[in-house]
Structure formats: structure tokens, C-alpha cells
Amino acid sequence: EVRVRALYDYEGQEHDELSFKAGDELTKMEDEDEQGWCKGRLDNGQVGLYPANYVEAIQ
């Protein structure tokens, strides 16, 4: 698992997508798939998908 930080706001479009604001931190659980989606977990425990290019790894 990798900690990542959102670069942009994202509003989930489907029930299985996460929503977050730029600057939020979350945990990447799985690497992106061929469509460019990652599985992650918000700090509130919600698990879902998000676009991989909306986040950067925290060093």
C-alpha cells in the first residue's frame, strides 16, 4: 500500500468511485488497471476507485 495525495478535486460518478478534494491524502491499495483506475481507501475507511492521474505518491 502506498500513501498518495490528490492533485485535483474528484467527484465520484459511480457508487464504486471515491470522491476527494485536492490535497486530500489516501491509501492506494492496488495499482492502476488498463483503464487508468486505481483502488484506494480514504482515511474514513471508504474503499473505491479513482483516476490514477489525479494523485501523486507522497515521498
Score class of each variant (00 low, 15 high):
1 E>M: 15
1 E>H: 03
2 V>I: 13
2 V>Y: 14
2 V>E: 13
2 V>F: 07
2 V>H: 06
3 R>W: 05
3 R>E: 02
3 R>P: 02
3 R>H: 03
3 R>N: 04
3 R>G: 03
4 V>W: 03
4 V>H: 05
5 R>S: 04
5 R>N: 03
5 R>I: 08
6 A>I: 00
6 A>D: 02
6 A>R: 00
6 A>T: 04
8 Y>S: 09
8 Y>W: 09
8 Y>H: 10
8 Y>I: 11
8 Y>L: 12
9 D>G: 04
9 D>A: 06
9 D>L: 01
9 D>I: 00
10 Y>R: 07
10 Y>T: 02
10 Y>E: 02
10 Y>W: 06
11 E>S: 12
11 E>P: 14
11 E>T: 12
11 E>C: 06
12 G>A: 13
12 G>C: 12
12 G>L: 03
12 G>M: 12
13 Q>D: 06
13 Q>N: 08
13 Q>L: 10
13 Q>I: 03
14 E>T: 10
14 E>H: 14
15 H>V: 09
15 H>Y: 14
15 H>A: 14
15 H>Q: 11
15 H>S: 10
15 H>L: 13
16 D>M: 06
16 D>G: 10
16 D>W: 09
17 E>R: 12
17 E>Q: 13
17 E>T: 15
17 E>W: 12
18 L>C: 02
18 L>G: 01
19 S>R: 07
19 S>P: 06
19 S>A: 13
19 S>M: 03
19 S>C: 10
19 S>Q: 01
19 S>T: 14
20 F>Y: 02
20 F>S: 01
21 K>C: 06
21 K>P: 01
21 K>W: 05
21 K>D: 07
22 A>E: 10
22 A>K: 08
22 A>S: 13
22 A>T: 11
22 A>D: 04
23 G>Y: 05
23 G>N: 02
23 G>V: 01
23 G>C: 03
23 G>D: 09
23 G>F: 05
23 G>E: 04
24 D>T: 12
24 D>P: 01
24 D>S: 08
25 E>I: 10
25 E>W: 12
26 L>T: 01
26 L>K: 02
26 L>G: 02
27 T>A: 13
27 T>H: 11
27 T>C: 14
27 T>G: 04
27 T>S: 09
28 K>V: 13
28 K>Q: 15
28 K>T: 12
28 K>I: 08
28 K>A: 09
29 M>V: 11
29 M>I: 15
29 M>C: 08
30 E>G: 12
30 E>D: 09
30 E>F: 04
30 E>C: 10
30 E>P: 08
31 D>Q: 12
31 D>S: 11
32 E>Y: 13
32 E>I: 06
33 D>Y: 07
33 D>W: 05
33 D>E: 14
34 E>G: 11
34 E>L: 11
34 E>Y: 15
34 E>F: 07
34 E>H: 15
34 E>M: 13
35 Q>W: 11
35 Q>R: 14
35 Q>S: 14
35 Q>G: 13
35 Q>T: 15
35 Q>P: 09
36 G>D: 08
36 G>C: 05
37 W>F: 13
37 W>K: 06
37 W>P: 02
37 W>A: 06
37 W>G: 03
38 C>R: 02
38 C>E: 14
38 C>I: 05
38 C>F: 03
38 C>N: 04
38 C>P: 03
38 C>A: 14
39 K>D: 02
39 K>M: 13
39 K>I: 09
39 K>W: 09
40 G>W: 00
40 G>E: 02
40 G>T: 00
40 G>M: 00
41 R>G: 03
41 R>T: 04
41 R>K: 13
41 R>I: 04
41 R>V: 07
42 L>G: 03
42 L>I: 06
42 L>K: 09
43 D>E: 13
43 D>Q: 11
43 D>R: 05
43 D>K: 13
44 N>R: 09
44 N>H: 07
45 G>D: 07
45 G>F: 02
45 G>V: 00
45 G>C: 04
45 G>N: 11
46 Q>N: 14
46 Q>I: 07
46 Q>P: 08
46 Q>S: 13
46 Q>D: 15
46 Q>T: 12
47 V>P: 03
47 V>E: 15
47 V>D: 05
48 G>H: 00
48 G>E: 00
49 L>N: 12
49 L>H: 09
50 Y>M: 08
50 Y>S: 01
50 Y>N: 02
51 P>Q: 12
52 A>Y: 03
52 A>N: 04
52 A>W: 10
52 A>R: 10
53 N>P: 12
53 N>T: 11
53 N>C: 15
53 N>L: 10
53 N>W: 05
53 N>S: 13
53 N>K: 14
53 N>V: 12
54 Y>M: 11
54 Y>K: 11
54 Y>I: 06
55 V>C: 15
56 E>F: 06
56 E>R: 10
56 E>N: 14
56 E>K: 09
57 A>R: 13
57 A>Q: 05
58 I>V: 14
58 I>G: 12
59 Q>R: 13
59 Q>C: 15
